[in-house]
């Protein structure tokens, strides 16, 4: 399955990119996250939420969406 990933804020520095498309199969959001942490070890130092098809969901949820956003909190004002 083709998954379009988008990284926000600090995660762009951790992954070195703002977007990418990967073709892989994962049964849960957590499995996708494990894969991303392996690909980008710096992600481990970050706290973020994952949305699939514009809905923030828990890691146990099945991965069904093809659009994934990784979103950290922002600080600045």
């Amino acid at each position: 399955m083709e998954i379009k990933l988008r990284y926000y804020g600090q995660l762009q520095e951790a992954t070195g990119k703002s977007e990418e498309i990967i073709s892989k199969h994962f049964s849960t959001i957590g499995q996708l996250n494990d894969y991303l942490m392996k690909s980008y070890p710096k992600l481990e130092n970050h706290n973020y939420k994952i949305a699939q098809n514009n809905i923030i969901e828990s890691y146990n949820n099945p991965l069904i969406g093809n659009r994934i956003d990784l979103l950290p909190p922002f600080s600045g004002g």
Partner: peptide, 10 residues
């Protein structure tokens, strides 16, 4: 909550 230094400020 983020850890100290995890997210830089403006």
């Amino acid at each position: 909550p983020p850890k100290v230094g995890e997210i830089p400020n403006c």
